[in-house]
């Protein structure tokens, strides 16, 4: 099932991302997990967009029936940008937390509870 390879990769990446988020205790590693999970979704959407024999909609003289709607690509680009913004904001929070708490271990970042 060679054509299912991207989807298998999506599942693997999702599991790796989830496991990283839940099992690691270091904030930075958790963010890496979030990033891997985002990549899994991006790969999923971009894999959906593949059409056999399709032509990228950038050639002016191509046969218009065979052109592929670039929606999944546009979605993925947007999602990548959002992912970058999210990870950047998370990392900047981690910097402040490390400065004030002196730790990046999630088990010790629990001033707010109950």
């Amino acid at each position: 099932m060679f054509w299912n390879l991207p989807y298998i990769a999506v599942v693997l990446l999702s599991v790796i991302g989830l496991a990283t988020i839940l099992l690691k205790r270091n904030l930075i590693k958790i963010f890496l997990g979030v990033s891997i999970l985002t990549s899994a979704v991006n790969l999923f959407i971009i894999a959906l967009g593949y059409r056999e024999g399709g032509i990228a909609p950038i050639y002016t003289y191509a046969v218009s029936e065979n052109m592929v709607m670039a929606t999944p690509q546009a979605l993925t680009l947007t999602s990548i940008v959002i992912g970058v913004a999210t990870i950047a904001l998370m990392l900047s929070f981690a910097v402040i937390i490390y400065k004030t708490y002196g730790t990046v271990n999630v088990d010790e970042i629990k001033e707010l509870k109950e």
Binding site: I30, K110, E111
Partner: peptide, 17 residues
Amino acid sequence: IVPLHTGIMTDYLLWMF
């Protein structure tokens, strides 16, 4: 009930999953 509110952020995600 109260000890469930651990304040650890991965626990929050675990509940969601």
